[in-house]
Design a protein around this nucleic acid. Structure first.
Lengths: 341, 341
DNA sequence: TGTTATACTGTAATCGTTTACATTAAAACA
DNA sequence: TGTTTTAATGTAAACGATTACAGTATAACA
């Protein structure tokens, strides 16, 4: 029933080899033969059998993307960009979301590398131990790391500037006059962005010749899942004898939970407490007051990651270095004000 | 380099046929031989070559899921459930998001059916014309429709109760005393849930022996994209000579935009205006005031859809009818109150 | 003219499975 | 005992593409 390369060859009065050569854009085909083949393909509505091609060429035509969750605006945007590129290039995308579970993450990466199920792997926001990631990078499978940095390696890493996110928000709050600034951070425990956020946070203080109060830095272990409830942590912070006058939240979702806690306690944002987020999710614009946050180029990150991966698969040289850091932009809205005194 | 079925056969001292029979759980293998094969597989860490299997069995091992967008909490949850099931069953998931573009949607479905790239298709929230969907259903490719209903067909449809969502919120508002209730609805133009919402809206009014004011029903064409800006529509509604006292929004994202408009106009929710949403997204709990909305069983919907599809692919009989409607639950929070006058 | 280079095309092996059919050995029966 | 049935296994032909290699025809050259 299905039309094969042989049917095309027969109709075009050439061998299957010639048809295959046309299919794969080899140049050793006369224009006349090529035209006959093309006509036959069109006439028969021929479509290559991908399984056969893959068996023969030993490629899978599949790219895996390991993500911590799908329910996250930044990941979403990255995925959309990745998906676009994948389909455009004829690849199938195998999505594996780990739900912030490192065991599950390990399981996926093992599965994907052991069985040669995929031609390449896009590993987004790894939470695994550096040695694990490092081992993976040496496995020979084309790999691109996102939101992660692996030193001393040829593995391309692509990430936005995690240091800068916390640096910019913290610097902004400091310049408004805040000194008791809290940081709501993740710690997963190898989660690269979390460490960078802290670095940016401290760097901003250093600019003012200050040091942050360590008791105001809260790292929540295992808060990788989007649905994590931060409210106890936030309450604890506000219950301090000298509570913070501003909070730098890890991302917008966390910042919105700060909003919820303030509502519970009857605190006014920004009069009583300034809040900043990160990611610039849609609702950050609609909440009351609109949230000051950091816009990150998620789509670009996804697109570039895919570009890197395809180049590796095709053994093309990368035109960028092994690590690419993308700029971020502070979005000043109305959730911050000078401290009340 | 890679270990093949022949290596296993050699080590187990059987033929490749026997190994294959063990692999596929055929029962015509002696326990003794089976054990030897199993041992060899373990020892060699053998993994089947999926391309070869697919070529031989004429299956692709891939399931496509066509979705309107990935940046939507309900779709997200469905996808997660679908993905879990797919990986568990050894299928690869090909995600195609149409971004609410019907042309793109048509392109995907055509691509997926013409080339036999996939074993089955999960079609979520179709916006295409019924004839298109109908034609697809007759194409022979195993298909499950989500958030859609195709009458007179064997194609399984699975959806939550779209009528009930609007019915419950509207009924609740009516029982609080509201009479001028607006409906912010989609119209895409074949978007099944939108029509059902209107039906539920009117049904609730009918329960009170009332009829809704047609001028308060706003159907926004082409508002399929999540990032659509509804604020002009909402302002227009509130600019009416006799503005509504309550708004039933199509979903929580739209409801949050109502919040934003109220903020702009200095209106208080729920004192000046009651608002309801749909989907029960995370931030609906954190906004001020917490949003009264409808919880829908998105994960169940995804899981069941996948179950249906796999049964079709395996030619198993469905234990349910062709259409499955899932119940929804009203979540009463604080965004609604009796009308002020 | 013969030789060699060039351009194109075809033949057939190959990728790693599955499976129809053939074969064998053992068990069951007459 | 010989014959038939049954259970277990093996042989080898597919599946549909790609590609190394061989072959042919023409052009270019000596």
């Amino acid at each position: 029933m299905p039309v094969t390369i042989e049917d095309v060859a027969r109709l075009a009065e050439v061998s299957t080899a010639t048809v295959s050569r046309v299919l794969n854009n080899h140049d050793l085909v006369s224009n006349e033969a090529r035209q006959r083949v093309l006509d036959a393909i069109l006439k028969l509505d021929y479509k290559v059998n991908l399984s056969a091609r893959r068996l023969r060429t030993n490629q899978t035509g599949t790219i895996a993307v390991v993500i911590p969750t799908i329910a996250d605006s930044v990941i979403n945007q990255m995925i959309e960009a990745i998906e676009d590129a994948a389909i455009e290039e004829g690849y199938t995308l195998l999505m594996c979301s780990t739900r912030g579970d490192t065991e599950r993450e390990k399981g996926y990466t093992r599965l994907l590398t052991q069985q040669r199920m995929v031609d390449g792997l896009l590993y987004i926001s790894p939470r695994a131990a550096p040695e694990e990631v490092s081992k993976l990078a040496q496995g020979g499978l084309p790999l691109v790391l996102c939101n992660y940095r692996l030193e001393q390696t040829k593995t391309p890493c692509i990430l936005f500037d995690h240091v800068s996110t916390a640096y910019q928000t913290t610097h902004y709050l400091l310049s408004l006059g805040h000194r008791r600034i809290a940081l709501l951070n993740l710690d997963a425990p190898y989660y690269y962005p979390a460490r960078m956020r802290q670095e940016g946070f401290e760097k901003a203080f250093a600019d003012f010749r200050l040091r942050p109060d360590p008791t105001l830095i809260r790292e929540v272990h295992r808060a990788t899942h989007v649905n994590f409830d931060w409210r106890d942590v936030i309450h604890a912070l506000l219950d301090l004898e000298v509570p913070p006058t501003a909070i730098v939240a890890f991302n917008d979702e966390v910042a919105l939970q700060v909003y919820a806690v303030c509502r519970e306690r009857g605190l006014n944002i920004p009069a009583d407490l300034s809040v900043t987020g990160c990611d610039d999710i849609l609702s950050s614009r609609y909440v009351d007051p609109p949230l000051t946050t950091v816009h990150i180029p998620a789509r670009d990150e996804g697109r570039l990651a895919m570009e890197f991966l395809l180049k590796q698969i095709r053994h093309e040289r990368l035109s960028y270095g092994a690590t690419l850091v993308l700029d971020v932009e502070l979005m000043v809205r109305e959730s911050c004000a000078a401290p009340s005194s």
